[in-house]
Design a protein around this nucleic acid. Structure first.
Lengths: 359, 359
DNA sequence: TTGTAAGCGTTATCAT
DNA sequence: ATGATAACGCTTACAA
C-alpha cells in the first residue's frame, strides 16, 4: 500500500519539483504548457505527482497569480432557495449557465436577502464579474457589486452609467396589456403586483408608492397599465392595486382576495407576473367565479405553466435575458461599457380574458 | 470631481498603507479586526480607502493566505441549463443553498456534461469542498472531485470509502412500489427508466445492462422492481424495460411509446421518475387510454406537479437531501469521514394506479 | 528545453 | 495599539 498522502504535508508544485529534481517552472509547464516539455520529462513529472498525491496546481494560487478567478457571480434578490421556485428566475439561470458553460467559467450564486444588509458575500466573492438580476435600485448588495473592480451586467433594473444592461420594455408591454383589456371593454379592474420595496409589506398601494417603487420592473409595469387605462378614461387612483411581498401562487391568491375586498365588482384582474395570476385564478375559482366569463385575468412573463393553461400574458424571452447577460459579461472584447440590450416581448392572447359580462 | 480610480494602478492594501503612512498589518486589521485599532486610526484608513477607491481586501489573495475559499462546489451530472429543468434537482439545490446561506459560504455550480471528459472545471474550482449530486459511478468528473484535497459529500451514489454520503434506499422503495402493483393484480407491466450510462442511448434494456447501470439510483430502483415482481412469479426478463437518456416529460412519452410497442397488453407502466411518468400519462391519453382504468402508471420522487395530479409515487425528501449534504460538508467538526445519511421515503398511493381492467 | 527571479495581495506570528 | 517579517502556491518574462 502506498504511503498515505495525509501523513505528510500536502504536496505543492515546489515540493514536486524538488522531488523530481527540476525547477518549479518545469512542473508548471507540465500542467499548463505540455508542449514546452519533452514528453519524457513530462511523464516523469506526472508520475511523481501521482506518487506524491499532488492534485495539480492550486486554483486559488493560480487565480491570484493570473488575476482570473474563472467564475462569475450572480446576484439574486432572494434567498437562493426562494429564487429557484420562480420559473422565470430558473429560466434566466438556464440562459446564463449556457453562456458560462461555453465560456468555461463557473457560476457562483450570491444571495442577497432583502432583509439583510450584510454585503460580505459580495465583497468576498472570488469572481471576474457579476450579473445582478432584478435587484431593487436601493439595494446595498447591488451597490457593493458596483463597487467591486470587476465588470457587471445588470438585468431588469434601471440603467447605471458605465454598466451593461439587459432588459425589456416593461412599460410598453404593460401598456399593450392595458390596451387589450380596454379594447375588450374593461373599465373596472384590479391589479396584483410583486413587491415594490425591500421591506415586507402586503396590501393596497397608493400612487405615490407605485411611482416610488424600488423595483424597476414593477414600477414600469404599473406605469404602463396606468397610462393605458388613464387614456381610456379610467380613474387610476380608484383602481385597487395590491402589493404582495412573496412571489408564489398562494401569494397571488391572497392578493386577489385583497383586491376583491376593495372592489368586488371588478371585471378584470391584472397580475404583474404569471405566478401571481395563477394564484388569482385559484382564488376566483374558490369563489365560484368563472375565468374569463365572470372575471378576466392576465399575467406577465410567459412561463411554461402559464402558456399551458392558456393564460393571457406577455411573453418575455427570459432565457435569452440570461444568455445576453452572460454574453455581455464574458465578451472578451468588452471595450465599450454601458451597452444596452432591450429584448422584444410578445403579447399573447389566451383564454383567460374576454369581454366583461353584460349585466 | 474625484480623480478616476481607473487612471491609476488599482489600489492595494500595501498602497493604501503607504498612503496613510501605516503598516499593511494595520490596514488589514482595519478591515478584519476593527477592535485592534483605535477608532481614529481606523477612520483615517477607511477615509483613505474611499479616496483611493480601494475596494477592500482582494478575495482571492485572502483565500490564498487563509486557505479558505469561502465557497463549496456542486457537481451536477448535466449541463447546468438542463439540471434546472428537473424539479427534483431544483429542490435539492434549494436545500443545499439553505445550508450555504446559513454557513455564509457561496455555492459554485460545476457542470459535468456526460459527453465531456474535460475535468478542468473541477480541478480549477476554488472551493473548500464538493457536493456531487447523482453522478454515474464511472464519471471522470467525480473522480476528479475525489482527487481534490478537499472534503466531499456524495449524493445518490454508491458509497466511496472515506466520503460522506446522503441517499435513500432506492431498492426498498422500488420494491414497495412493485408490491403495491402486484397486490393490485398487475402481472403484465412495463418500465421506463432514466439513463443508465453516460452515452446517449434510448430503447430497450436487457438484464445485463440493468445490472451494470452506472447510475446507482436507477440500478437500485430497477433491482427493487425486479425483486418484487419476480417474487410474484413474473418473469422479469420478459418485462419491457426502456431507457430514456433525456429526462423530460416528452422523453417519458417516447419511452412509454417504446414500451407499448414491445408489449401493447401491459396493465401497468412504471416510470422511475415522476417527470417520466407524467410523459407516460400524456402518451397514454394520446392513445385514448384511460389512467388508471386501462393502464396504471406510477412515478418516483414526489415532485410537486406529480402530487398535484395525484400520481402514485414514492415521495423522497429531496430538499432534505440537499440540506444534509450541505450540513455534512460544512459541519465544522467533521472529524469523521465516511458518514452515511439514509433518508426515509414514503409510498404515496394516488389516483393513477388501480386493479387491472378485467377482460 | 529548462532554470532564475520577481512578484500576485493578503494575513499570521511575534515583537515592540 | 501598531509594525516587521515571512509565508500562502503559483505563473511568467527573461535568461541560459
Amino acid at each position: 500500500m502506498e504511503r498515505s498522502s495525509r501523513s505528510r504535508p500536502p504536496a505543492t508544485l515546489a515540493s514536486l519539483a524538488a522531488e523530481v529534481g527540476v525547477s518549479r517552472t518545469t512542473v508548471s509547464n507540465a500542467y499548463n504548457r505540455p508542449d514546452q516539455l519533452s514528453p519524457a520529462l513530462r511523464a516523469r513529472v506526472m508520475e511523481a505527482a501521482a506518487r506524491l498525491g499532488y492534485p495539480g496546481p492550486d486554483p486559488v494560487a493560480r487565480s491570484l497569480r493570473t488575476r482570473k478567478a474563472g467564475a462569475i457571480g450572480l446576484l439574486l434578490t432572494e434567498q437562493l432557495s426562494y429564487a429557484f421556485r420562480d420559473p422565470a428566475a430558473v429560466a434566466f439561470l438556464e440562459g446564463l449557465t449556457l453562456e458560462c458553460d461555453s465560456a468555461k467559467v463557473g457560476l457562483l450564486l450570491v444571495p442577497a436577502r432583502p432583509d439583510s444588509d450584510d454585503v460580505t458575500a459580495v465583497a468576498g466573492a472570488s469572481v471576474d464579474g457579476f450579473v445582478a438580476y432584478s435587484m431593487p435600485d436601493d439595494d446595498p448588495h447591488l451597490r457593493a457589486v458596483l463597487a467591486r473592480p470587476v465588470p457587471a451586467v445588470i438585468c431588469d433594473q434601471p440603467a447605471v452609467p458605465g454598466t451593461d444592461l439587459v432588459g425589456i420594455d416593461d412599460h410598453a408591454a404593460a401598456r399593450g396589456l392595458a390596451d387589450h383589456l380596454v379594447e375588450l371593454g374593461h373599465r373596472r379592474i384590479g391589479v396584483v403586483c410583486m413587491r415594490l420595496g425591500r421591506a415586507r409589506r402586503d396590501g393596497a398601494v397608493d400612487l405615490v408608492r407605485q411611482q416610488a417603487a424600488h423595483y424597476h420592473v414593477q414600477r414600469n409595469r404599473l406605469a404602463g397599465l396606468r397610462e393605458g387605462f388613464t387614456a381610456a378614461g379610467v380613474a387610476w387612483d380608484r383602481v385597487p392595486v395590491v402589493e404582495q411581498f412573496d412571489h408564489s401562487v398562494e401569494s397571488g391568491a391572497r392578493g386577489a382576495a385583497a383586491v376583491l375586498a376593495m372592489d368586488p365588482g371588478i371585471t378584470a384582474l391584472i397580475a404583474t407576473s404569471d405566478v401571481l395570476a395563477m394564484g388569482a385564478i385559484d382564488e376566483l375559482h374558490r369563489r365560484r367565479q368563472r375565468v374569463p366569463e365572470d372575471v378576466s385575468v392576465s399575467g406577465f412573463d410567459g412561463i411554461r405553466a402559464a402558456r399551458e393553461m392558456q393564460l393571457t400574458t406577455v411573453v418575455q424571452p427570459v432565457e435569452d435575458k440570461g444568455r445576453y447577460a452572460g454574453r455581455l459579461l464574458l465578451d472578451p472584447a468588452r471595450s465599450t461599457r454601458g451597452r444596452k440590450v432591450v429584448l422584444p416581448t410578445t403579447f399573447l392572447a389566451g383564454q383567460t380574458t374576454a369581454p366583461p359580462r353584460v349585466r
